[in-house]
């Protein structure tokens, strides 16, 4: 296959994308940096305050709590969804109408607007009108996600598993489908059991697809906003207030331009750092 040709004329091809994304990413980010350095009463009355908002945000207990909560939530999401997604992918039929049907069924949660996902779980888990809530109450479990922080966490996690495990499953399914049959035959000749086949044949070949699954789930769980906003509104108390919830309440709710902007910059830097680590990993994978 011929090598990729080296020419800087290719910049003309990417120019439209650069312009569109510069408009919707670079200008806003510059603006956020500008805002984060000032105390803004209105756009004509503003005072330069240096890094004060950053100091304040980094010492704000609610910010730190939201950050810890976010970290715990994302870890829980990965720990549950990765193994579950792989197991589901292994169980899926390989071909035929059953495979198509199952794939569309599994893809379904991904196509539902995020606020509707929240609504679905709201009416499913409520103790008064929800099937799950009523069933648990019938079993004698005192389950109320609007009053108990633990129940709220369980419900939000169940909702996220319901919503996003499909993504991991579809990625893993596609990765499994790409493994040549010869590998399995060779493993069978060696007398490998199901666990050995998974450990030494499938898992190594799923590596790159799983790294991408981890990247996507980590990043998307880090920006979760809509589903808990509808389901719990961040409560009870602040029990399910994650980073985006807190930032949105600062930016749109109270319209605190300076602190919200400092928060945004910190949040973005964190994402950038995680993104870079994973990109380096993926690229290494591609080279080896």
């Amino acid at each position: 296959m011929p090598e990729r040709r080296s020419t800087n004329l290719a910049w003309f091809g990417v120019l439209p994308v650069v312009l569109v994304v510069a408009f919707s990413a670079v200008i806003p980010l510059m603006t956020v940096v500008n805002y984060s350095l000032q105390d803004i009463f209105d756009l004509n009355t503003r005072v330069f305050v240096g890094f004060d908002w950053y100091r304040e945000t980094l010492r704000d207990p609610r910010f730190l709590e939201a950050l810890v909560r976010q970290g715990l939530f994302s870890m829980a999401v990965l720990v549950i969804q990765l193994p579950l997604g792989i197991l589901v992918a292994k169980g899926l039929p390989k071909s035929g109408w059953r495979a198509s049907f199952m794939l569309v069924l599994i893809a379904l949660p991904l196509l539902i607007p995020w606020n509707v996902v929240g609504t679905i779980w709201q009416i499913f888990a409520r103790p008064d009108i929800g099937l799950l809530g009523a069933a648990l109450a019938g079993l004698g479990v005192d389950f109320n996600y609007t009053a108990s922080p633990v129940d709220a966490w369980i419900t939000v996690l169940m909702m996220d598993v319901w919503h996003w495990t499909s993504l991991v499953a579809l990625l893993a399914y596609a990765g499994l489908a790409a493994i040549p049959q010869a590998y399995y035959q060779a493993a069978a000749l060696d007398g490998a059991g199901p666990w050995e086949v998974f450990r030494y044949v499938e898992l190594p070949r799923l590596r790159s697809v799983l790294i991408i699954a981890i990247l996507l789930r980590l990043m998307d769980s880090f920006m979760i906003y809509t589903e808990p906003f509808v389901l719990t509104g961040g409560g009870p108390g602040n029990a399910t207030t994650f980073l985006s919830q807190y930032l949105t309440s600062m930016a749109v709710g109270q319209f605190d331009l300076g602190p919200a902007a400092a928060f945004s910059v910190l949040y973005f830097l964190l994402i950038l750092l995680m993104c870079w680590v994973f990109y380096t990993l993926v690229m290494r994978e591609a080279h080896e």
């Binding site: 200008i27 510059m30 603006t31 940096v33 500008n34 805002y35 350095l37």
Partner: peptide
């Protein structure tokens, strides 16, 4: 660009 609320330090940085 007035809505961007530029300051001298941030402009220098960019």
């Amino acid at each position: 660009m007035s809505w961007m609320a530029w300051t001298a330090p941030s402009a220098t940085f960019f």
